[in-house]
Design a protein around this nucleic acid. Sequence first.
DNA 1: TATGAATGAGTGTTCATTCAT
DNA 2: AATGAATGAACACTCATTCAT
Lengths: 232, 232, 232, 232
Amino acid sequence: MTEEIRQTEPVDYRTRIGQERRQRTYDRLVEAGTMVFADRGVNGTVIDHVVRRAGVSRGTFYNYFDTIDDVLVAAKRALAREIVSLIFEAIDEDLPPAERLAYGVKAFVELARAHPLFLEFTARIGRHAYGFGQVLDEVAPCFVRDSIMAGDFCPMPEEMVTDLLEVGTLALLRRIVAGEDVDVPAFVAAILRMLGVAQEEATRIAALPVVCPVVPSEALLAQSNAAWIKSH
Amino acid sequence: MTEEIRQTEPVDYRTRIGQERRQRTYDRLVEAGTMVFADRGVNGTVIDHVVRRAGVSRGTFYNYFDTIDDVLVAAKRALAREIVSLIFEAIDEDLPPAERLAYGVKAFVELARAHPLFLEFTARIGRHAYGFGQVLDEVAPCFVRDSIMAGDFCPMPEEMVTDLLEVGTLALLRRIVAGEDVDVPAFVAAILRMLGVAQEEATRIAALPVVCPVVPSEALLAQSNAAWIKSH
Amino acid sequence: MTEEIRQTEPVDYRTRIGQERRQRTYDRLVEAGTMVFADRGVNGTVIDHVVRRAGVSRGTFYNYFDTIDDVLVAAKRALAREIVSLIFEAIDEDLPPAERLAYGVKAFVELARAHPLFLEFTARIGRHAYGFGQVLDEVAPCFVRDSIMAGDFCPMPEEMVTDLLEVGTLALLRRIVAGEDVDVPAFVAAILRMLGVAQEEATRIAALPVVCPVVPSEALLAQSNAAWIKSH
Amino acid sequence: MTEEIRQTEPVDYRTRIGQERRQRTYDRLVEAGTMVFADRGVNGTVIDHVVRRAGVSRGTFYNYFDTIDDVLVAAKRALAREIVSLIFEAIDEDLPPAERLAYGVKAFVELARAHPLFLEFTARIGRHAYGFGQVLDEVAPCFVRDSIMAGDFCPMPEEMVTDLLEVGTLALLRRIVAGEDVDVPAFVAAILRMLGVAQEEATRIAALPVVCPVVPSEALLAQSNAAWIKSH
DNA sequence: TATGAATGAGTGTTCATTCAT
DNA sequence: AATGAATGAACACTCATTCAT
């Protein structure tokens, strides 16, 4: 038995080391991908850009991904998870739905403003965007449906809400990237009105303050943003 | 005088023939481009696809365009002009702004539904879309601004209105293309609420009937749609 | 007989008009070619450049030339004839050979300096150069051989003289085009020494003054130079 | 310690193998380029010719060069270094400048005669030639200037000497390629006279014998010449 | 004879993918 | 697992040449 353990232990060790190394390489590729997509957009990015930025060889890429789009998907997922959970941790669950939604949107924009890499990345991925509806439903299942049924939002198809939320926010970020002044509260108010919130109430909620969520330094968002800044 | 005419006639004739041929080829390229973009999207389309579809040689392409994107731009412009003018001709100018807007949006969607090529094309060009704000302002200058100042829409940045209108409509069309059932009145109502129209009023207006504009058979929209259908 | 003349006269007239027109178009092509070759070098010039500069159509080109190189050849010949005969008219035939040669070389350089188009053209045609030996022998047959036999130049192969004269002058012009200061008398002296003239005598002859030949305004050189200047 | 070596060896091995393969491919491309330029001249050579001759794929070319001209430059440099060092090793440094120069020129011509590929290549690259002045100055810095200041050559601009040397030699090689009989001593004598050497002395020096330098069989010159011969 | 639209072979360049080491 | 040289299909673009008008 001891023998067995002794025999397997080195294997486990090697396996663990191998897996860690594998994870590290994977992370480097995703991080590099995030930065390159932010720099060159979805269609301007090729495998070579990513592997060079990640400091690995071409061949290694194919040990982790099949196509460049897979990197985009992985980066989108990783970022979306991080960000959405950061935001949801910051939202007071006792607030009414409209206020929670408003808080989430504004926190998202603040996060983007605070992380130019993320801003660029999001503005550039265009129609390949995060699939906000899905992510939203992962973290806060049935939020939209429940709110509609509870009468907080007026009746409308769920996916229409998430669609408008997603593409509207994207359009907003694109204007920010373009250097224009954007009126975020006006945007939030418009979304709330669309959801059936009365004009004055919408304006009031849209004006409520948010605090930008704190991003842990080991997060992909923080790491890649820092590396990206350094290279610009 | 007769002499003059006799001398100039052959020149005019040759010139006219040449110009007509040139125009025909140009039209074929734009029409082919529209179809290919509808089939393969913006990034999947290459010059070769277009010239093959148009039945002209590679070299001919470069007598008319520099890049494939120029074809996209030309197609967008041609379609946008046709469609917007068709729709605006159909709108009763005496209606209040909210009803005119609702009518326009619904007519646009109907037109798209009736012309699968146009639907695909529009859904696929994505963020390269028509620049609705601009086109809207060409045909109905200051419509949004005036409506806001007149108190018909609630105050918000002009470009935010056109942004949401454009990207929202695009998202809607993408769902139609995907074969989903979409609730156009619900969409229109959402847009109207966003603009400050009260819930009941928005619902009422969104439910008003539209007649799909008649498309003249020589229009690019009709021609290319017919050809496209035939090839599918 | 009168009848005959009357009948043929109009024909002659038309023929003459036709030939004149043909000559005019030909001249325009050669002139345009000269300018384009000066602008873009031998390998950078394509038929389109020439026809556009000449203001004629592509098809017309093929009524006069088969290839773009034929234009180069025609331009070279026309310019070489003009220039060499201008220079030879200016040379005092009673001078000893060394002085005549020195005068010719210096006049050639002066002519080039005074006509930037010609300078550029000559510097850019490179190894396709004028075939100076041949042109020289056209205008002054056996000049080199006679001078050698008379003991004015020391014995050496004739074509070696013209080779060194041609490529040396070309190298000189290239330095002028590059904006460098060149010492023309030093060059002439070097050529004369190469021909066997003693050092002091060579220096003396190389320092003799020349007057730049007058170029008639209807010459290709003058015409194309003027047009070229205007377009730069 | 043994451990260390064992760990690094495989890396070194892989690296070495890779570098060797890389070097081999590079050499094949340069060698192929040399042969194709000799066959078709500078302007008649395209990337496809080179890769086909080298037996590699189109894509491989771009792993080593950006343009076809880069191959020309590489070939010129490689040949020039080989040849010039061969010649300079053969020259007795104790001889007076005029004799050393004469020896160099004659050895160069002999080398060209003995290597038809090199002869063709040199004659065809024309004005893109070796930049003899530069190469000369690399190997024998200030040779011309020092000789002038020492009174061995008569005063004249340095670059005029190298210009005439280069273009004169090139013209000579072109005649050899054309199958004409050329009088190399006469050429050398002409160059020497140009430099101020007296006629008799020039003739004497130009007549001194040279031994054609021995080319090691692994040299680019030898390798590519052999391959080229075999294919003609 | 002049025109210029149309042609298509030729060439340069990119980039995903494979594979021997 | 990692490397990176090699590959070749795909694509962009040029330009000499033809031919109907």
